[in-house]
Design a protein around this nucleic acid. Structure first.
Length: 429
RNA sequence: GUGGGCGUAGCUCAGUCGGUUAGAGCGCCAGGUUGUGGCCCUGGAGGUCGCCGGUUCAAAUCCGGUCGCUCACCCCA
């Protein structure tokens, strides 16, 4: 509406009760699934030292941070992601912890960027990580957690899919096709863009940015559409370094199939996940229609803890935001109906029964029941309307005649059935 | 940061070849004579037509700017 001096900041959200209920619906599913897999919940501060992010991503990241200098002259930033904090926390205490460490968290993250669909300046992101385990079983476990969370929220294989790849496999394939070792990062950057830029542009960029010839560039682009591990094995089976990487991804997919999650998983070599810290298997979850941004992304990052000054520990994890996921759930009609409810609404017939009614209401609350009533004397009709508004399951009518006989009238609002109940039965005395 | 689209009640919108006190539905409030809700009926509150400026006798309507929202790009979570 009208722009007031006190309007909400762009990219930030309010959560009135109905919206908060939906958010909690998502959070609850996340927590249930994480706990089901034996993960422990943790948290950290929303404000961190700016260096924590510059260290990992370079100076250019500062332009996208909510950062400032605090009153103690410390450069600080609202956390844009959780993984650096996790690395810091574990760096301080992992030696005393048994491995593997399985932790999850639901932090609110901030990023100073222009907002658009699925992307605000603030969001909540479920982070799930396994630290201290380099086996592919941990990679598979983490993806299974992500898939099961979406299933928990009512989404199925017809709604979303996980696209998986492995940077080590892609590296081996690219080297086999003529990309120099020191140009692999550039090649990743180009391949990461193939979906938006198309094969033609990708070929051109591979030639100009990674130094391969036109023939090799064409073969690389063609290779990227190969989605079957068997196909890759048939083509590169004679190369031991490729076979080794292929075997790991096969085991990974095999584990997920054994869990019954095979329908959700597709190998896709174009998934490389930005440029940051991933070192092995990477994955992203997308809606099947391809209308939305990635719902979730993650993978193995074996060097990160070392990078922020901790012990070298292998790690794998993912982040899943509430914004894109919320959009998908809304589109699929998977928003649970919202309705306010109280168990009892106490109707006071006349002022003479007001104190009696209050004592009864409070006795019910002492028993843990939710109870509401009108704060001022109103007609019974009016009070019933209020009870309706509150979503009361039962209305307790405290009237002079009944109260004199030690009973109250209880009406079941869904059936309309009424019965007299001794006050002692309700008050629990 | 760049470009396109859009800004009328709390919500969804109508109203613009410029012309009297800007409308509807839903929601909200009050009432339908303090012993009964959903339906219904009556009444009411609520809008500087995003904001600023310009053109005009006259602007929600035309023009410019600005802010906000939104989509795409960039980049990424």
């Amino acid at each position: 509406m009208a722009t007031s001096a006190f309007s909400r900041l762009p990219g930030f959200r309010d959560f009135p009760p109905e919206d908060l209920a939906f958010r909690n619906h998502i959070f609850d599913a996340w927590r249930r699934v994480a706990l089901r897999y034996g993960f422990l919940e943790y948290d950290g501060p929303p404000l961190e030292s700016l260096d924590l992010y510059v260290e990992k991503s370079g100076e250019e990241i500062v332009g996208q941070l909510y950062n400032f200098v605090d009153k103690g002259d410390r450069p600080v930033a609202l956390r844009p992601e959780m993984t650096p904090s996790l690395a810091r926390i574990l760096g301080e205490r992992n030696r005393a912890m048994s491995k593997p460490i399985r932790w999850f968290t639901v932090p609110q993250l901030f990023r100073y960027e222009r907002q658009q669909r699925g992307r605000l300046r603030e969001h909540y992101q479920w982070n799930v990580d396994i630290v201290g385990e380099d086996g592919v079983g941990a990679d598979a476990e983490v993806l299974a957690v992500a898939i099961d969370a979406l299933r928990e929220l009512g989404l199925g294989a017809e709604d979303f899919r996980a696209r998986v790849s492995d940077r080590r496999l892609l590296s081996a394939l690219l080297v086999a096709l003529g990309v120099a070792e020191d140009r692999l990062m550039q090649a990743f950057a180009v391949i990461d863009k193939i979906e938006r830029q198309g094969g033609e542009k990708t070929r051109e960029r591979l030639i100009s940015e990674t130094g391969v010839d036109a023939d090799a560039a064409a073969r690389i682009v063609e290779l990227l559409s190969e989605s079957s591990l068997e196909g890759l094995a048939a083509r590169f089976g004679d190369r031991p370094e490729v076979r080794e990487e292929l075997a790991r991804l096969e085991e990974y997919v095999g584990i997920l199939r054994a869990m019954g999650l095979g329908d959700f998983v597709e190998v896709d070599l174009t998934i490389v996940r930005g440029l940051a810290y991933y070192t092995g298997i990477v994955f992203e979850l997308f809606d099947r229609k391809g209308e939305l941004r990635a719902i979730c992304g993650g993978g193995r990052y074996d060097r990160l803890l070392e990078l922020v000054g901790g012990d070298p520990l292998p790690a794998v994890g993912f982040g899943m935001g509430d914004v894109v996921l919320g959009e998908l759930l809304r589109e699929r009609g998977l928003v649970p109906p919202y309705a306010r409810t109280v168990e009892y609404f106490v109707v006071v017939v006349g002022d003479g029964e007001r104190h009696a009614a209050l004592s009864l209401a409070h006795a019910l609350r002492e028993q843990g029941r939710s109870v509401a009533y009108s704060f001022k004397g109103q007609s019974v009709r009016k009070q019933f309307k209020a009870a309706e508004q509150e979503g009361a399951a039962q209305v307790v009518v405290v009237g002079p005649d009944e109260w004199a006989r030690g009973v109250v009238m209880v009406r079941d609002m869904s059936t309309g059935a009424e019965r007299e109940v001794p006050v002692g039965d309700l008050a629990g005395s």
